[in-house]
């Protein structure tokens, strides 16, 4: 037993040595060492770790929703309507007798679907527009930034509403609408960073080695914008969840009977006084997940923010 522990200890020490060496033998080792130091820094922030754990739990729940949820989220059972908490329905049931816990569990899939797709659409658009605009400057910059300004000039939710109204209600259209309204701040951030980066000697140096604009932007500028962008996107996740819930609440996002948290709060609204759990349970879910993303974002900022680097 003791020998086993000692062995583990040696393996651990070797791994640590390998990660922290000043003379890495391969690009992979160098990158791993850097990631390890970042992880150590991140783990120091307890709240951020808590946020990360919540998000991991969310992903886990979404993946295994059919096994976790005791009831079908859509099937109605009018004999069981508006039941308070019980061993069978731990979050109670709604106005058509569906188990709220099951709906919240299944709703996590929709939430992840929304924020995942929005991040995949909005972040790349933002970073490409921002870096291109910042790198070339001049006319390109003026055109791209004015377009960005137009999007920024509208309140996010109102603009999303307008798009959904034009495209028709539904979760896919809600995602497109949110993505369209989310990228401008990312473009602004990426542009700001690019303008400082493009005047640095290391960009001049690579230019003088004959690198073209595409190579410089994609391999030299973007990686440096990435960290502040990741932080920003993570912090924005909370806002995206709330916007999606808001659209759902207004009936323009996910359509009933799909168990989207925003739509659930909306339909529970009518019962808020006598049957408060209808609106509170999905509301709590929105709150917890938003908070988790905010905590994670703050933790990531400490690790990734270039200003605290080196």
């Amino acid at each position: 037993m003791n020998k086993l522990m000692a062995d583990q200890q040696t393996i651990y020490n070797h791994a640590k040595e390998w990660l922290l060496t000043d003379t890495p033998a391969s690009a992979f080792q160098a990158a791993a060492g850097r990631a390890y130091l970042g992880l150590l820094e991140f783990l120091k922030n307890r709240l951020a770790v808590l946020g990360l754990l919540i998000i991991i739990a969310l992903v886990f729940i979404a993946l295994f929703a059919p096994y976790i949820a005791p009831f079908d989220p859509i099937l109605t059972n009018l004999s069981q309507r508006l039941q308070p908490f019980s061993a069978e329905h731990i979050f109670g049931t709604d106005e058509v007798g569906r188990d709220i816990f099951s709906r919240v569990v299944w709703g996590s899939r929709l939430t992840l679907y929304i924020i995942g797709l929005v991040a995949i659409i909005a972040a790349p658009v933002g970073i490409i527009v921002g870096t291109v605009s910042g790198y070339f400057g001049g006319f390109v910059d003026t055109v791209l930034m004015r377009i960005t300004d137009i999007f920024l000039a509208f309140p996010k939710l109102i603009l999303a509403l307008a798009f959904v109204a034009a495209l028709g209600p539904g979760i896919e259209n809600a995602i497109i609408a949110i993505a369209i309204t989310s990228w401008p701040p990312y473009a602004r951030i990426a542009r700001g960073e690019t303008i400082t980066i493009r005047n640095s000697d290391f960009i001049r140096a690579i230019k003088l080695q004959g690198a073209g604009a595409i190579r410089i932007i994609s391999r030299h500028v973007m990686p440096l914008c990435l960290s502040s962008l990741i932080v920003r996107v993570t912090l924005d996740m909370a806002g995206i969840i709330i916007t999606a819930a808001g659209l759902g609440f207004l009936g323009l996002g996910a359509q009933p009977p799909s168990p989207e948290w925003g739509a659930m709060t909306s339909s529970g609204r009518a019962y808020i006084l006598d049957h408060w759990w209808l609106i509170t349970m999905p509301g709590m879910a929105i709150f917890v997940v938003s908070l988790a993303f905010n905590l994670l974002g703050d933790g990531l900022r400490e690790v990734l923010d270039p200003k605290s680097d080196d």
Binding site: A27, S200, D201, F202, A205, L208, D309
Partner: peptide, 16 residues
Amino acid sequence: QLVFQDPYGSLHPRHT
């Protein structure tokens, strides 16, 4: 080819 003055600024900070 050119060698820059400031060795702290002329190398990409995230590249080995």
